[in-house]
Design a protein around this nucleic acid. Structure first.
Lengths: 198, 198, 198, 198
DNA sequence: GATGAATGAGTCTTCATTCAT
DNA sequence: AATGAATGAAGACTCATTCAT
């Protein structure tokens, strides 16, 4: 388990990991290829043995993230008929997913205008649309069945909730008094369902 | 035509405004000096008659923002003894402030790692500390007086609330089905105080 | 006449000239942007104040050349009804044109595969087609009117003649025993019309 | 399977062949070692088991070509006393040689400045000198014996004829309405000896 | 105040080459 | 013989900044 065949793909995955950490820390554009190479202890040109461009590294990170998110959303929706449970499931799956893809989220938040302008990253818009649809559908159904307040603006609530959900991911792990993912989620869900008032 | 010195400072303010819009749109680092100059209809070199560096433009935008925020926080706290009212006031003042400083906030979110690493922008950390202290103080007082739930983790709630509060600012005005600032704040406050359940 | 307003466009033209000389000497691809900049006594990055890419310099040189060639061909054809005179006129105009565009021709010969593969240089193919058509038309008409041998393969002769015509341009001016353009053309025309035999 | 050493040299010859095709197509410098390796179905590093550098492949191609050309010239001159026959023989031998060494000729035409500047390829200049001498000698003898026009500039005619002779080699085989080598040579010789006029 | 030319450091990327396995 | 990882030098291009006019 410790020293198996360190394949090409493992090396590659390691490099993606390193790159992701840097992207999460300073943003995609602000991270130079040299930064990544230095983190890996090689020269910048050597990265091109593994990837054909900086963007293809970004691509790998982003598409893996969105695949994961969408999978979670789909299975959340498929698992129940109760909108409230579906939302809860979406939140829980998001949290798990997000902690695995901190880099991707930071990239999306920081460099959205950069990525979304490129045809290569067209799937970003597609995926975001599916995410929005999923939320809005569950919220609307909840309104109809009386689980949620009838006066909610589903799209507005979606935007707020989605962004709220994505907040903790961007918190640096270095932040001294760190909270565990679970603590954060609990705090969040409590806030969402119950508010802060006693 | 009337007062040359005023014209000069107006011109300058206009340039800062233009720069800010671009910073908000694409981030500070991703915006080039040429972008700003083009928006102003001049050549990039000419900007240096008004500012001695790109960073000094950023400085102007960021410090104006933080001055405004802190002023709002201080007067919110000074205006009442009731922690809940103080928090409400902080939220309301934040919203007003933020809509006036969209660029600054985007810069802080996008390029925080860049700015915070530079001595020149040391005041950013100082200001953020005061902001945190203000929130935490009011939350703790609310817990003691029983207005807020006793089990709240003040710092965690602060981080969540502050970031939640800052979310809508980053929403592009171009977003088709746009909401007014008031709608967003109402939605937000309702979410915070009451949750989404019926 | 000696020191007029050294406009921006003159500077630019001078740089194109320098670049062209280098392209003619070593080919387009083999010439680096640094080579050009050094020839101009500036740094390579400074070239981008005048051109937005190396290719745009090439574009300028190539399109100017083809415009010139086609103009010559068109006026040659328009000037007479006699195919032999038309061909003669084409040859003479070519020679004049070619001596003014040595760089362009070398680029076309050396790096044709590079340019012709790019959409940006699509006009190259278009222009070459018009050139071929012009030759073939005159040759065919000459065959019909009996001025040229009836057994000529017009396209083959065109290819041979065009390439023959373009040969001397690629001769380096440095070649010690240089011939004047006129000498070369005379030798060429004589060869073409009369052969080498006594 | 039978004779490993032969297999080895066959493999090597095959690689040279592949490289030559690419050189002929895009030029020596524009062809990357990776291009060659890919054509051979191996990785670029593996080529270095067969050759110690890209240049040594070029060397192999160029020297084989020049050896062949010179052999042809020498035997052409040795075979007759009649300058016209000698020239004819040179033309015929060239044609045969050239069709076997398309790559070499393209390399010479495209990247002459690159090769001729390197000591390693010093033999290129030596060989070209012998080629020139051979032509000039036969032309001068023809002038003296009255076979050729007395007013020919031997060196000029040599340059023209040599380059003319080399033209068809650079024509891509892909050119739709392709002509056979024989057709081309016939067209050429006819042009040279008789001109195009009826 | 603005222009236009230039700088110099840095960005992503390419490529011939090396070498341990 | 070949692979796969790496090197190091170079290439095209970008950008904040400077400065004479």
């Amino acid at each position: 388990m410790t020293t198996p065949s360190k394949n090409s793909s493992e090396r590659r995955a390691h490099l993606v990991q390193l790159a992701g950490d840097l992207f999460a820390e300073k943003g995609f554009r602000a991270t130079t290829v040299r930064n990544i190479a230095e983190a890996a202890g090689i020269l910048s040109g050597s990265l091109y043995h593994h990837f054909d461009s900086k963007e293809s590294i970004g691509d790998e990170i982003l598409s893996a993230f969105l695949d994961d998110v969408l999978a979670g959303y789909r299975s959340a929706v498929a698992s129940t008929d109760d909108p409230r449970k579906a939302i809860e499931e979406i939140v829980r799956s998001s949290t798990a997913t997000l902690s695995r893809h901190r880099a991707a989220l930071t990239m999306l938040q920081n460099d959205w205008s950069y990525f979304s302008a490129q045809p290569r990253f067209g799937y970003l818009r597609t995926a975001m649309k599916e995410i929005e649809q999923t939320w809005v559908e569950q919220l609307e159904r909840g309104k109809q069945t009386g689980v949620f307040r009838a006066d909610l603006d589903a799209r507005l609530v979606y935007r707020l909730l989605r962004d709220i959900l994505w907040i903790p991911t961007s918190w640096r792990p270095s932040k001294g008094a760190g909270w565990s993912t679970d603590e954060i989620v609990d705090g969040l869900l409590r806030l969402l369902f119950d508010g802060i008032t006693a």
